[in-house]
């Protein structure tokens, strides 16, 4: 769908009007006023259908045993353009690499989704969710547990059947 340009010709001299045009405008606004069809969405009751590509609050995927899938590879803090991910890697009891600290500052985040794109183990995702209002600013730094608790669906950044858009 391309950009549509509508060229409006300036009316010829003497052929313009103010009052008639104003009355036409009044009629138009009156028609809209009595028209019962309204475009407003009554938000809390009516929920928006988010696109599957909506990039919102992050989700950390977990293994079946509840461990985070993250291996603390450091790619998401590296790629993050807003520098909102803090990661401290370490070794768990089984000698596996895992994130000791994994924090995302949702205030700083620009929701570009590059963390999800870069993640080699499909652990961190942006999600189809946007309602993250809080009463204090420090609640916007989501730690690992909070990211794992998020239960909204994660974003589909690409069509799984056509991952390369071919």
């Amino acid at each position: 769908m391309g950009v549509q340009v509508k060229v409006i010709q300036r009316p010829e001299p003497g052929r313009t009007s103010y009052l008639r045009a104003a009355l036409k405008g009044m009629a138009l606004t009156f028609r809209h006023m009595v028209n019962p069809t309204k475009v407003t969405q009554q938000y809390p009751e009516e929920q928006t259908d988010l696109s599957p590509r909506w990039r919102g609050t992050h989700v950390m995927e977990t293994h079946a045993d509840g461990r985070p899938k993250c291996v603390a590879c450091g790619l998401c803090p590296t790629v993050c353009p807003a520098n909102c991910i803090r990661l401290v890697g370490g070794e768990d009891d089984n000698g596996n690499r895992y994130p000791i600290v994994y924090e995302i500052d949702e205030f700083r985040c620009i929701f570009c989704g590059m963390c999800q794109e870069v993640c080699p183990v499909e652990a961190i995702h942006v999600g189809q969710h946007f309602e993250n209002a809080e009463y204090s600013r420090d609640r916007f730094v989501y730690d690992l547990d909070r990211l794992m608790e998020q239960d909204h669906p994660s974003t589909l950044l690409w069509d799984p059947s056509d991952p390369r858009s071919e």
Binding site: A72, G74, T78, G89, E91, R97
Partner: peptide, 9 residues
Amino acid sequence: FLYKQRAWD
């Protein structure tokens, strides 16, 4: 140095 930092950082 195990798992401490990434080399590129």
